[in-house]
Design a protein around this nucleic acid. Sequence first.
DNA 1: ATGGAAATGAAAATCATTTTCATTTCTGCT
DNA 2: AGCAGAAATGAAAATGATTTTCATTTCCAT
Lengths: 121, 121
Amino acid sequence: MSRSNPRVLSTLERAGGFASAQEVYKLMQREGEKIGLTTVYRSLQSLVNDKIVDLLRREDGEAIYRLCGEHHHHHLVCKSCGETVEIEGGAIEKWAKSMAEEHGFRDVGHTAEIFGICSKC
Amino acid sequence: MSRSNPRVLSTLERAGGFASAQEVYKLMQREGEKIGLTTVYRSLQSLVNDKIVDLLRREDGEAIYRLCGEHHHHHLVCKSCGETVEIEGGAIEKWAKSMAEEHGFRDVGHTAEIFGICSKC
DNA sequence: ATGGAAATGAAAATCATTTTCATTTCTGCT
DNA sequence: AGCAGAAATGAAAATGATTTTCATTTCCAT
């Protein structure tokens, strides 16, 4: 078993606690970190096993890693220029919770993203 | 633009209305249908465009296609067995709309999925 | 210092999905 | 019927994320 490389977790945090393995890798490269893609994957997997990060899926199926426990937020993304705004989702949290309870689900998480065209585009 | 090959839809129905592209393809092969994998993919994409089937994701990121009603809804998915419940998202619709307006976004859409462990697992 | 375990990463393998492109099948039209 | 252009098809190659392999390096306890 491999343990997580601490620089990976720290980079994920710096990325806003929400990124894919490839993004974490590229970010570390840009910052001059000497690390292989394989290690990034292994570290993220290990963090998921330890329940330190959540594993979610983008719409295209790419895995995205999100820090657990952290007060999480949602995104409002411009389909045209990619600008992203972090938004609060209080209503969503309640909705997810009540829906899950209603159907007897436990260990519940959720994803919610809003996308559209921003005022500049 | 290619239109959906009707045999693909009929196979998806026969598969219980819930299968991946690869599964639909293998099923058709076993039944002696002469069809290429490419056409299966194209047909399923087209069915998604026409909102005749829903596109969701397995835990491993593989796309699964699922016949579903035409009303807008969200999903509650079991991470363990894959059971899926269609749920209403009235609160989400309002949230997405108000968040988008607040930040000047237009042509807005959204995704929202809840995942957890169902009562049977 | 030393031996074994754990970590690392480059390259190859895997696997779903998409793209390319040449061929075949339809279509409408004369 | 015959013909041209459009649409559909599928085999093979390309893509892209993720995993595996395996040889090398780093750690750690002795």
